[in-house]
Design a binder for these strands. Structure first.
Lengths: 194, 194
DNA sequence: CAGTTCTCACCTAGGTGTAAAATT
DNA sequence: AATTTTACACCTAGGTGAGAACTG
């Protein structure tokens, strides 16, 4: 047992795939800060768990990261017939039939102890496992109390959209910033905004 | 949430595969008692969870069974190039490149309440989740007490052996009783020997 | 009455931040 | 001094059989 779970989790929704095609879905986490490249970028290997429930796909990926570094999660959609062998430990292939998505607001910083009191409060308020630390002192209104009891907060879903699968060949290459640009607090391992 | 977990679990070890080939591994549970066929055999559909850890593969399969019936778990090794489409809800294909294993000692009977006091004791003694019901009254010897605390009992591993992959074409067909014939107590859902 | 369903106390298993202790 | 590690109380989440309640 080593490391801690990412919270909040990355949630993604994929639209516009060709139903007659098959795809691989891959995820990795790459360092954001190029200045630190003398510390070798952490390997993206790890155990993978899949759960198929209806049309949903839950992926639990174990990735080793370094503390006090800035990282960016990425999601890759890889057309099955784009020959190159897929494998953990190897970098995700690029080229035709491979599309990489990364959302700048999901950049996070790894820490071993929180640096920011606001992050701590956010985690305690949102993570069900931290319920024991919630400040039940400040009294909530009736509705707020009900929400607190019943609501299960979940991180927002990022949507990966293919305008059309046939365009995929021309749109290869690096990360496609398909979304807003709010600097964020999504933070795995105990973490916070540095 | 419906149904209960099978205990003890089915454990299987596969040997003799061709490293240059790819295989599907399937599991289903079929009724043993042909006399009851007027009750339609239960579907083998269900959610599947996979966990890859090192070379181990954990499969959690959710299968709906009828109570008070006798069942037989089976494991299928299916060569990937044996064309026919794989799908839950459909019966496992048979023919060349498909090998089915079933161990007669793993036959079990489904119940909603235990019929046999010995089964109850076995479950309580072996299943870690039933620890609350263990009879700590009858005192154990020192070693036995230590064992009780630390030992995690796991059901025996059945070995599925391919003498040679190339023989697989000729050895198609139904279940291959590859093992001893002890009538057994392996029993999912609350269950017991009828 | 035989069989099923439901609730419950009692477990396992493991995810939280905290605070002290250890490390660098 | 800054950071990481460890033990801990407090949670979530869910798997046990017992026994009451329910069903046909």
């Amino acid at each position: 047992k080593a490391g801690r779970r990412m919270f909040p989790a990355m949630r993604v929704k994929i639209a516009g795939l060709d139903p007659h095609q098959q795809y691989y879905i891959a995820m990795d986490i790459v360092p954001v800060d190029n200045k630190r490249y003398r510390c070798p970028p952490p390997p993206t290997a790890g155990n993978v768990s899949l759960s198929f429930i209806s049309l949903y796909l839950y992926i639990y990926l174990q990735i080793i990261l370094h503390s006090m570094h800035k990282y960016q999660p990425r999601v890759h959609i890889i057309r099955k017939d784009s020959s190159s062998e897929l494998s953990a430990n190897k970098p995700v292939p690029s080229g035709e039939g491979v599309k990489t998505f990364s959302f700048s607001e999901t950049v996070f910083t790894t820490v071993t102890a929180y640096q920011n009191q606001q992050i701590t409060r956010l985690k305690i308020d949102r993570n069900p496992f931290a319920k024991g630390f919630r400040d039940s002192g400040r009294n909530r209104t009736g509705l707020e109390a009900i929400m607190e009891t019943y609501a299960f907060w979940r991180p927002p879903v990022r949507t990966l959209t293919f305008e059309d699968f046939t365009n995929m060949q021309k749109q290869q290459g690096g990360s496609t910033g398909t979304s807003p640009t709010t600097s964020s607090t999504g933070t795995p391992s105990p973490s916070g905004a540095a």
